[in-house]
Design a protein around this nucleic acid. Sequence first.
DNA 1: TAATTTTACTTGCATATACAAATAGATAAT
DNA 2: ATTATCTATTTGTATATGCAAGTAAAATTA
Lengths: 131, 131
Amino acid sequence: MYFASGALARKMEKLAIDTWKKVGLSPSHAYLLMMVIDDPGIQPGTLASELQLSPSTVTRLIEKLEEKKLVVRTNEGKLTNVYPTPKGKDLLPKLKSCVAEFHDSYSAILGKEESARLVHNINKITDKLFP
Amino acid sequence: MYFASGALARKMEKLAIDTWKKVGLSPSHAYLLMMVIDDPGIQPGTLASELQLSPSTVTRLIEKLEEKKLVVRTNEGKLTNVYPTPKGKDLLPKLKSCVAEFHDSYSAILGKEESARLVHNINKITDKLFP
DNA sequence: TAATTTTACTTGCATATACAAATAGATAAT
DNA sequence: ATTATCTATTTGTATATGCAAGTAAAATTA
């Protein structure tokens, strides 16, 4: 199981990196940016829990997107809000087409049904494992 | 799918790290050592393909095990053979009990059936994805 | 046999991620 | 109101991993 789940994740990672290369972002950066566009002002903690990443990882992701002028952060008290820049928002169509392409490239191999079921099962099990 | 597989792998990794902490090895190091004990003289390439890791990663894993005097390498021509040391072999019982413990800790949650099926499905899909 | 290609491994460098500690603001308890 | 605790985020550091380039031996071809 240990190597099975690791291997799946690494191969998915590779496939995803390949897909998002054309927008110059890693898959995590891309998904994070999409979430920010979808919900401007969203906070790092929310991003972390939705992306299933640790808060520190999310901070690093945001930093990089900020360098690229795709998002900006504002600090209000202890809270941080993340907003997309116009340049970030402009990427949205391309990002969406990458999502579609990525989805297609694995569901073409696995079949729509099977891939949906797999995702469902993996999520169910992940939740069960560490509630 | 991208985050689902990543999240599962990270949680499995965490569970595994926890399990193998008592022998002072990471899960990958532990599995590699078991393979070496099981098949003394095994070559890095074989280890890489069985563990589903890249050759360079395997080299790094072996290096660390060598530092800890758990394995030794011999070079014969372009081939490298990896052998367990007595100290390495002594660890075997503990390693095996970690495997059992790790296996138990997730199959306790998922059920024997379900976890076996999941591993099977993940492997099937990984193979299909990148033959 | 000499030159080329292939194979097996290693090394340099880069990325993704997390944990633990550090801030610092918000909330609760005394 | 002051102190203590909790919460949200960031920073320092470490690990696991891979790719691409390097090395060297082996196999193939000419």
